[in-house]
Amino acid sequence: MSVVARAAVAAVAVLGLAACTSSVAGTGSSDPTVVPPAQATLADLSKAVTAKLTGSGSAKFTVDSTTELLDAHTVTSVTGAFRRDDQGLWMTATMTVKSPDTTTLSFVLTPSAVYVRPPADQKLPADKPWVRATENGTDAFSQEFAPLFASLKQATLSPLAMPLDPATTTIVGSDLQPVGLTPARHYALKTDLTAVAKSLPDGPLKDTTLLEAKLGAMVDELWVGNGNVPLRSESKLDVPATKGTLTVSRTYTAWGQPVDVPVPPDSQLSPPPAGG
Rank of each mutant, 00 (worst) to 15 (best):
M1A: 13
V4Q: 11
V4H: 00
A8I: 10
A10R: 11
G16H: 07
A19H: 15
A19G: 15
C20M: 15
T21N: 11
A25D: 10
A25K: 10
A25T: 11
T33F: 06
A38F: 02
A40H: 09
A40M: 15
T41K: 07
L42A: 07
D44G: 00
S46N: 11
K47H: 06
A51Q: 11
A51Y: 04
L53A: 14
L53Q: 12
L53C: 12
F61T: 07
F61E: 04
V63N: 03
D64R: 14
D64H: 13
E68G: 09
E68C: 06
S77C: 09
S77E: 14
V78M: 14
T79C: 04
A81D: 05
R83T: 13
R83N: 14
Q87H: 14
L89G: 02
T96A: 13
T96M: 09
V97P: 01
K98T: 08
S99R: 12
D101L: 13
T102D: 04
T103Y: 05
V108C: 05
L109Q: 11
P111S: 10
V114H: 02
V116G: 05
V116F: 08
R117Y: 00
P119G: 03
D121V: 13
L124Q: 08
A126Y: 00
K128F: 06
R132S: 05
R132Y: 02
A133L: 04
T134C: 07
T138R: 14
D139H: 05
F141T: 01
S142I: 05
T156F: 09
S158M: 03
P159K: 10
L160W: 04
A161L: 06
D165I: 00
P166C: 01
P166F: 02
T168I: 06
V172K: 12
V172D: 12
S174N: 11
D175F: 06
L176F: 12
Q177S: 12
P178V: 05
P178D: 14
G180A: 05
L181V: 12
L181E: 10
R185L: 09
Y187L: 14
L189D: 04
T191W: 03
A195L: 10
A195M: 00
D202F: 02
K206N: 04
K206T: 03
T208K: 05
T209C: 07
T209D: 01
T209A: 08
L211C: 00
E212Y: 15
K214R: 11
K214G: 03
A217H: 01
M218H: 01
V219P: 00
V219G: 02
W223H: 12
W223C: 03
N226S: 12
N226R: 05
N228K: 02
P230R: 04
K236P: 00
K236R: 15
D238E: 12
V239H: 02
K243F: 10
G244T: 07
T245F: 10
T245W: 03
T247Y: 12
V248Y: 06
V248W: 04
T251D: 02
Y252K: 01
T253A: 13
A254F: 12
W255P: 01
P258D: 06
V259E: 08
D266A: 15
S267C: 10
S267L: 10
Q268S: 15
S270W: 04
A274Y: 06
A274T: 14
G275W: 05
